[in-house]
């Protein structure tokens, strides 16, 4: 792109990586004083320990304030920096940099997929671990469980009849909740737990399901 004069155009602010399951998006705020002006942005990234900043061609002279760097930051054992500068006509700002970004440590681990199947006095819960972001749709999926082998699930179970909510820690992918009350609404949410550093994790959406009518009670009446 045409050279620009770096002469005091204000820098973008709050340049950070937003990361969920290793989908790593660089985002920033436009400079206060340039809001509304026709400002474009250019992004670069650096692999910690390497010399050169690298261009992200799809994020050259863009007018949005985010840039998906998941492909470039795919190796979660590396650490990275991102930077962005504002360009307005012939003028451009200095680079604004992120902190050092460590995907393994800082990505938010999303919730598992939760499948519920009601029985008369039971609910079977089948969990599918969140998947790491994929470079290509046809790539084989990498489960976040492979990246965090000591990953567990904290399952919360709410009994709407007794208004009691209790938790059950689960290591594998299936949980059979038995001897429940029939024809009762139960609400279930599941959150990943990984021992070690403090991590951001997101609970699954609460799913409510009603246990079936108890056929044996019909026979006995």
């Amino acid at each position: 792109s045409a050279p620009c004069f770096s002469n005091g155009l204000p820098k973008p602010t709050n340049v950070t990586f937003s990361s969920v399951n290793m989908k790593n998006v660089l985002q920033w705020n436009s400079p206060e004083s340039l809001r509304g002006a026709e400002v474009v942005y250019t992004v670069q990234y650096l692999i910690y320990g390497q010399k050169r900043w690298l261009n992200k061609s799809e994020c050259r002279n863009i007018n949005r304030t985010s840039c998906d760097l998941s492909y470039e930051t795919y190796d979660h054992e590396e650490q990275y920096y991102g930077r962005v500068k504002a360009i307005w006509g012939k003028h451009c700002s200095k680079w604004a940099e992120t902190e050092r970004f460590n995907p393994w440590l800082e990505t938010q681990i999303g919730p598992p997929v939760v499948a519920l199947t009601p029985g008369e006095k039971s609910i079977s819960v089948v969990l599918t671990a969140p998947q790491k972001w994929k470079r290509n749709a046809e790539d084989t999926s990498i489960s976040m469980h492979q990246i965090y082998p000591n990953m567990k699930y904290n399952v919360s179970i709410y009994n709407s009849k007794t208004s009691k909510k209790w938790y059950k820690f689960v290591i594998n992918y299936t949980l059979e909740l038995s001897l429940l009350e029939s024809e009762t609404l139960y609400c279930i949410s599941v959150q990943v737990y990984v021992p070690g550093p403090l991590r951001k994790t997101k609970p699954s959406e609460k799913q409510c399901i009603t246990t079936l009518k108890d056929k044996t009670s019909e026979l006995k009446v």
Binding site: I157, K164, K165, W166, Y167, K168, F169, S178, L179
Partner: peptide
């Protein structure tokens, strides 16, 4: 039980 302050399921009891 890893932490206090929440209701933790222990066992499904026999009638």
């Amino acid at each position: 039980v890893r932490e206090g302050g929440s209701l933790e399921h222990l066992v499904t009891m026999e009638a």
